[in-house]
Design a protein around this nucleic acid. Structure first.
Lengths: 226, 226
DNA sequence: TTATTTAGTGAATATTGAGTAACAATAGTT
DNA sequence: AACTATTGTTACTCAATATTCACTAAATAA
């Protein structure tokens, strides 16, 4: 059955890879310009094919957007799981989970995708994605509450804490560029450390991440500015 | 000359008011759905007029978007000025300025507007707005640096600190609703306190804002969810 | 080799939404 | 009242872009 000891990808695998490539590339552009501001021609061009070719792999634009969100949520939950497993208290779980999430998104998809533009998803289709997002946020809130109980997090409104954290994380879309001086690793760690320090019960007297150590390097990438 | 002791607004004043109303309403929708995701029909409908009527007051959609950003930046700078005047150190200046900015934006325009979608502004017109935004960010960074020097802010990468803060602030777009349980005042204060605590040199052992005190009210508005 | 399935192309087609033109109503002016 | 300027409407035009169609080339299977 299997030829070449499976070293050569099968047709189905290739198709799957292509679909994933489309989703990844679309996610990048959607994040930068918003889904409404992005044409399928844009996406296709970046992949070196024609727009029509995309339709072999996705049903329509809405479908593609849906897939982007779905993938982002998958990654998010995966990392939150790691955090829950490896962290020893609420705060640590959040830090590990969110740092991993952010790092993966930045390096893999260019940037996080979760930003759900209201009404961007066509009627009806938004429901499932919103449900996923809400579940994710709830999971994060639970960790905040856990942290408050175990003493790692200061008494804080969990909803607000999560909104603050997600805002800081998703805004990365606007300023991070892989061409800039910061690696995905550095940026993720430094940002999460900074943001979570806001509700840490024992905020260290100094920040430990690279980027904060060398605060003389005041220049960062900013792709879309003159 | 002046009739009714100027109690009745002049023609020019009315025109001006209408233009402002358009900008405010447009800002709200742009913030929610992005400018690409918003049609002028949407804006007009919310104002109870037809699209064509808008064209009496703005030249075109791009013009309108431009005006929105301009107004947002004006408010931002105004409040940063207040912060610089009234705050006694870098951290306080930032807190006062940003809390005021956020409160005003939330109650006045529904929500902050600064979110500049790449390519949303037509070629050429983006320049001035980006310049304004950059100036604003630089002004914020200066305050962070000032805070580091005067000991109110922990050594931190100023760029990253500003990005974190702005992310937390602008994300408000996604979750705040005036119909929800939180007033603009409450939300602004609690959010800024939380976010700036991330780089405060003397982070208090507890958060003082209303919303954090009563952490049992775990429910907040979330307009677009089931 | 020959047939069949898969991947992709370029040219239609349909829809959406910005912007315009011609007219209607309204209010202010003489 | 008659005249004029202002504000708004209805009914378009036109460009951009999503989606579909008919067809070609390449890969796989028989």
């Amino acid at each position: 059955m299997s030829k070449w000891a499976n070293a050569v990808p099968s047709r189905a695998e290739q198709t799957d890879n292509k679909r994933k490539a489309i989703i990844r590339e679309a996610a990048r552009v959607f994040n930068r310009r918003g889904s409404h501001g992005t044409t399928l021609d844009d996406v296709a061009e970046r992949l070196g094919v024609t727009k029509t070719a995309l339709y072999r792999y996705v049903n329509n634009k809405n479908d593609l957007l849906f897939a982007c969100h779905e993938e982002a949520m998958e990654i998010a939950n995966e990392h939150l799981g790691i955090g829950e497993r490896d962290g020893s208290n609420g705060l640590e779980k959040i830090r590990i989970g969110m740092t991993g999430y952010l790092r993966t998104m930045i390096s893999d998809m260019g940037v996080p995708v979760l930003i759900l533009e209201e009404n961007a998803l066509a009627d009806g289709t938004a429901g499932p994605i919103i449900a996923l997002r809400d579940a994710f946020e709830k999971r994060l809130r639970r960790l905040v509450e856990e942290g408050i109980r175990d003493g790692s997090i200061v008494p804080v409104n969990p909803k607000l804490a999560v909104f603050m954290l997600l805002g800081a994380v998703h805004w990365v879309t606007k300023w991070y560029s892989p061409e800039g001086p910061w690696t995905a690793e550095q940026a993720s760690e430094a940002l999460i450390e900074l943001a979570t320090r806001g509700f840490s019960a024992q905020p260290g007297a100094a920040l430990t991440s690279d980027l904060h150590q060398s605060i003389m390097s005041f220049t960062a990438a900013r792709p879309n500015e003159g």
